[in-house]
């Protein structure tokens, strides 16, 4: 099963290679990985999407925990959480498809962030399902380039019902 794991690490050089080296050295797969500073510039947050059965995920979590620079690990998959990813897609639609591209972008709450005579660059944010659906719809329009950020995730806070 696929898991999204948040890893709080010391923001030092070499930490990324310690983490990625752990995955490659032990034959675990990284599907996506995104890193950024947290509010505290001494700490970074990595969001890693990986796959494996329970044994593998247990090992991955323990091995990550064992790394000296890792402060905290949260397996988001076990929590109620929000996941987002952003993609930028450059399409080259035929003249007669242009309206459809704009239309779909609108429906998916995307934005056109750049355009030229022959291309549109669309920014789209969402969870995996939404992005996959959009990409499917864009394929016939002629995708020229495609980049994605990798997933980021955050836990939901419980909302108390009013009495």
């Amino acid at each position: 099963m696929r898991h999204t794991i948040s890893v709080l690490v010391e923001n030092k050089f070499g930490v990324l290679s310690r983490v990625s080296g752990l995955f490659s050295g032990r034959g675990y797969n990284i599907e996506s990985l995104s890193v950024g500073e947290t509010i505290d510039p001494q700490i970074s947050l990595m969001t890693i999407v990986t796959g494996g059965d329970d044994w593998v995920i247990e090992q991955i979590t323990k091995q990550l925990n064992k790394l000296i620079d890792v402060i905290k690990i949260t397996d988001m998959t076990e929590l109620d959480h929000v996941e987002r990813e952003m993609v930028l897609i450059k399409v080259t639609p035929r003249q007669q498809d242009k309206a459809e591209v704009l239309n779909l972008t609108e429906i998916f709450r995307g934005r056109i962030v750049d355009s030229s005579q022959r291309t549109y660059t669309i920014e789209i944010t969402g969870d995996e399902k939404k992005i996959e659906a959009f990409v499917e719809l864009m394929k016939p329009m002629g995708i020229k380039e495609f980049v994605r950020t990798g997933k980021v995730a955050i836990a939901r806070e419980g909302v108390k019902k009013k009495q």
Partner: peptide, 8 residues
Amino acid sequence: IDPTSIRK
């Protein structure tokens, strides 16, 4: 003492 040794 090493949790990764357990259930590996």
